[in-house]
Amino acid sequence: MKQTHTGVWTIAEIEDGSINPVSYELLAWGKGLSERLKVELTSIVLTNKIKDIESLIHYGADKVYYVENDKLEHFYPDTYTNILQQMVEEMKPEIILASATTKGRTLMPCLAASLKTGLTADCTDFEIEEETRRLIQIRPAIGGNVMAKIKTMTNPQMATVRPKSKLPLPKDESRTGEIIKKEFNEEMYQSRYEWINYKRDESIEQPLQQSDVIIAGGKGIRKQENFKYLKEIAERLNGAVGATRAVVDMGWIDYSHQIGLSGKTVSPKLYIAVGISGAVQHIAGMSTSKYIISINKDPEAPIFKVSDLGIVGDATEIVPLLLKELKQGDKK
């Protein structure tokens, strides 16, 4: 196939002028791919104002294109799509990655539809196919029981990427690169949307995704009341409580605690999986944790494959004791 498109793009996310860290995670993915392909890694910024734009270079971008206009203060799918469509058609990147945030998951389908190309949602890993240089997009499929490798036959190859599925590269302030401003005529900024307001909602604040320690429970904790042990342990470790889809479905704990494909992806320093067998659906949400400890009765439970420390034993016996010892530790 003749190479018509070249280069890897990542779409940065800006919130009120600041770069959202998911943008750096995307660069970590993009860096790996661009090095394999021996092409440039470009970060794309659409915003009304920006500070610290060089940080995108420091985190791995070779080049940054940015569009700055008051009308880009809020995310309007039509404006963003029109501008990006024009940029893509002009510069023809071969790969475009965006975060699977509410913004990325809205923008990317609109953009892919406009560009008449394919899009893969919520990827957790990527590979490059040796012979063809095509991007292999990997994501959990069919209710999260299996993983699928997906290839896009058209250009550009587009994908959204699960936040937290990779850590950003270490910041390297000695890196240099081009930062180029792109300009468009005013009619490109016209939108059919009108933003009214935004209210932070503390109750949907996700302590889960910010916690260094997560202790999560699955069916193996046997009953709803046993979550109280996990809650108390979490409190003592300054952590948060997670759960599997199964126990959330049974109503043992709220959906906001659900970790996995249909819940949240987390990557704490320590993840303690209690009575969780380790369905792919769940593992997709926690496998990037730095350390994983798991407790399960079944020695064959798949969770052990992703654990640094696997304990074959009855969670309902171990957890109360663990809490007790932590409490004693407190007294000392």
Binding site: G118, A148, K305, V306, G310
Partner: peptide, 23 residues
């Protein structure tokens, strides 16, 4: 008419050379 193709479906073999202990 589908630009994307599933080229392979697999059960992931994720492994962390962890320790497994039957207590």
């Amino acid at each position: 008419g589908s630009p994307t193709r599933v080229v392979k479906v697999f059960y992931p073999k994720i492994s962390r050379q962890g320790e497994k202990i039957t207590i």
